[in-house]
């Protein structure tokens, strides 16, 4: 838990107000050598882009453990962006190639689980691409804005109407425990 030092706490009213004017919370993991410098360039070039992005600087996109991305969602992010050097430009020569595999698999995995694809983004932004960075951010913010607040980890409310239909065999409304005949008993082969 954080310690309160000097920063005043947000008052309840302010929080409510914020709730009404919902803005997406997006966590961005930027590689130190390219994308972070690119974002810097966008700043020094006075390029405007959406401010809903929270940047975390990492040494390389290869440093981004898929766990970081998942943890960001758990801790309340509405979207995640990971950005690194273009292939071939990696400061550590191959970090982003390894990262590319991880991200491709992670994206497929969490989208398979039902995560909205508008919430998770990857980009290559070089140190010279300040304008591309602003474009990427705007795109990401727009996409997450469309997707709305992420409530995937709130407890689902079950009722008859929202009952989930699943392919027949996945979730059989199974027989009661052991209400099978005894000769079908598990793992038996009679001697």
């Amino acid at each position: 838990m954080k310690k309160i030092k000097d920063k005043p706490q947000e008052s309840e009213d302010l929080l409510l107000e914020k709730d009404r004017l919902w803005q997406p919370r997006i966590v961005a993991f930027l590689c130190n050598w390219c994308s972070y410098a690119g974002a810097d360039l966008a700043g020094t070039s006075r390029i405007k882009y959406n401010p809903q992005i929270r940047i975390i600087r990492v040494p390389c996109s290869g440093r981004v453990n898929p766990l970081f991305i998942l943890r960001a969602f758990i801790d309340g992010a509405d979207g995640v962006l990971v950005s690194g050097c273009h292939p071939g430009d990696c400061h550590y020569s191959t970090g982003n190639y390894f990262a590319r595999r991880k991200f491709a698999l992670l994206k497929r995995l969490i989208e398979f689980c039902g995560m909205d694809e508008r919430r998770i983004h990857f980009s290559w932004v070089s140190a010279a691409e300040g304008s591309k960075w602003s474009q990427v951010v705007n795109d990401v913010v727009n996409a997450v804005y469309q997707a709305g607040p992420f409530t995937g980890f709130d407890l689902p409310v079950f009722s008859k109407e929202t009952e989930i239909e699943t392919p027949a065999d996945l979730c059989k409304q199974g027989p009661e425990r052991f209400a099978y005949s005894i000769d079908l008993m598990s793992r038996t082969g009679k001697k």
């Binding site: 409304q173 009661e176 425990r177 209400a179």
Partner: peptide, 20 residues
């Protein structure tokens, strides 16, 4: 979901009176 658990119910019809 294929498993039997003690859960909060709203009406007696939801109860599973089976032997398991």
């Amino acid at each position: 979901d294929g498993i039997k658990l003690y859960k909060q119910i709203e009406s007696p019809e939801q109860i599973n009176w089976g032997h398991g």
